[in-house]
Amino acid sequence: MTAQTEPEIVMYDLACTKNICFSPTVWRIRLMLNYKHISYRTIFLEFPDIEPTLKELGLVPGQSASGSKYKYTVPTIHHVPTNTYIMDSVPIAQFLESTYPDPPVPLTSELGREIEAKARAVVGTAFRTSVMPREMGILSPRAQEYFRRTREASLGHRLEDLLDPDKEEQTWDAVADDMRAVGELMRTHKADGQFVLGAWPSGTDFFIAGSLQSARVVDEGTFQRIIKYPGYREIYEACLPYMEKKD
């Protein structure tokens, strides 16, 4: 009987009732792991269990430039060979790229930074309006209570208020031109390949595809609304081979 080998990485992910990954930030790391063929297993955590679980592992959030503490968050990984725990997608991506450099994934580029900044400002607004309140539909009752309490405290109103049909349409109409412009930036190197920088994926491709996959798991209608703009569908479909492992 062959002994089962321990995977290189244990990844802490956000739980949902579909038992698959739906967090856009976790998807960025999952795409990178899948692309680099790094073996890993997933531990799904409910929203209220993230902080106590990561505290128990000995993790401590860092501080921002202003001195305020970051929150406990997923993705978090345990790199088994070195017994190293890392929290948050940016330092995790940097660790994976330095530890597993082949095949390479350029984490940043001038074009990539422009796309990500504009996507957060433009698509992020519509994304939050349509996706965030619908996340309730794929959370357990415990996680729903936590999610509603924390998000509504930040918003100052009920999550359902975001789903007023007229307001939702107005939000998408307001960003339509900017979404087209961001999509065109994604197509800058389309003559060289399907990805942002051409023939091979970068961290920006995983940022885009991860966000789109998150939308798709939560609400197919929102996903379809986004990929009608040129650029988005091409990046998503180019990354599909690296989305097969999602649990």
Rank of each mutant, 00 (worst) to 15 (best):
A3R: 13
T5P: 08
V10M: 12
D13M: 08
D13F: 09
A15D: 10
C21Q: 15
C21V: 11
F22T: 05
S23Q: 10
L31T: 03
K36Q: 09
K36M: 04
H37E: 12
I38L: 02
S39G: 06
Y40L: 02
E51W: 00
E51S: 08
T53C: 08
K55S: 03
L57C: 14
L59I: 03
V60S: 09
S66L: 07
G67K: 11
S68N: 10
S68K: 15
Y72T: 06
T73C: 10
V74A: 11
T76V: 06
H78L: 15
Y85N: 06
S89P: 04
P91W: 14
P91N: 10
A93K: 04
A93L: 11
F95D: 03
L96C: 11
E97C: 10
Y100D: 07
P101L: 08
V105Y: 06
P106R: 09
S109L: 07
S109F: 11
G112N: 06
R113N: 15
E116K: 10
K118H: 05
A119R: 05
A119Y: 10
R120W: 01
A121E: 14
A121W: 00
A121Y: 02
G124H: 07
T129H: 08
S130M: 06
S130Y: 04
V131N: 09
M132T: 14
E135L: 14
I138C: 07
L139T: 02
L139G: 09
R142F: 01
A143D: 01
E152T: 03
S154G: 05
G156Y: 09
H157R: 13
E160V: 14
E160I: 15
L162D: 15
L163H: 12
D166K: 12
K167C: 00
V175A: 07
D177F: 05
M179I: 12
E184D: 13
M186N: 02
H189F: 13
A191Y: 00
Q194A: 15
F195S: 01
G198H: 02
W200E: 04
G203R: 05
T204Q: 04
F207A: 09
I208D: 02
G210S: 01
S211T: 12
L212I: 02
L212Y: 05
A215V: 00
R216M: 01
V217I: 14
V217G: 00
V218L: 00
T222G: 01
T222S: 08
Q224W: 01
R225H: 04
I226H: 01
I227T: 00
K228I: 09
Y229F: 11
P230C: 07
E237V: 08
E237L: 08
C239V: 02
P241A: 03
Y242S: 02
E244F: 09
K245D: 13
D247S: 13
